[in-house]
């Protein structure tokens, strides 16, 4: 199954190159350069996994995560952080993000997480359908 991935990062060069590399690894990728754009995308397009930078101007990573989880709780979110401290990432985990990765990224670790996110999402969907 080809995962539908949304990459959200205000560093356009980073977001677009990462999107290209994920596309080479069989992902269907959309890019958003800020939290507001990300919200528009998740409302218009079917997304399985969001790769979300935590430090963004305007609607920051944590606010975007909250907004995504409020309207589409089934979407899995993997956070990206450039900070050496993990306080914000821990806050994100408490708000329902699946995991986080540090920048600079290891692409294979990210792909592994995307695949895990897909499995988790399908399992959750099956569970929801099975519930009376």
């Amino acid at each position: 199954m080809q995962p539908n991935v949304l990459v959200v990062d205000d560093e356009a060069a980073f977001a677009k190159t990462l999107a290209e590399r994920l596309a080479l690894r069989d992902c269907r990728v959309t890019v958003a350069l800020n939290g507001n754009e990300a919200m528009e995308v998740v409302q218009k397009i079917y997304i399985d996994v969001v790769i979300l930078d935590l430090a963004m101007p305007g609607l920051d990573g944590i606010a975007t995560l909250k907004a995504i989880k409020r309207i589409k709780p089934q979407i899995e979110v993997i956070m990206l952080t450039g900070n050496a401290t993990t306080e914000t990432a821990s806050e994100g985990l408490e708000m329902g993000a699946m995991d986080y990765l540090m920048k600079p990224l290891d692409i294979e670790s990210l792909v592994e997480l995307i695949n895990m996110a897909l499995k988790r999402k399908s399992w959750r969907e099956v569970k929801t359908q099975a519930e009376p």
């Binding site: 190159t17 590399r21 450039g82 920048k103 600079p104 990224l105």
Partner: peptide, 14 residues
């Protein structure tokens, strides 16, 4: 600096 390194890392990876 982390952002710059992250971009170079992705470009090199590409």
């Amino acid at each position: 600096i982390k952002n710059v390194l992250a971009i170079i890392n992705e470009k090199a990876g590409l």
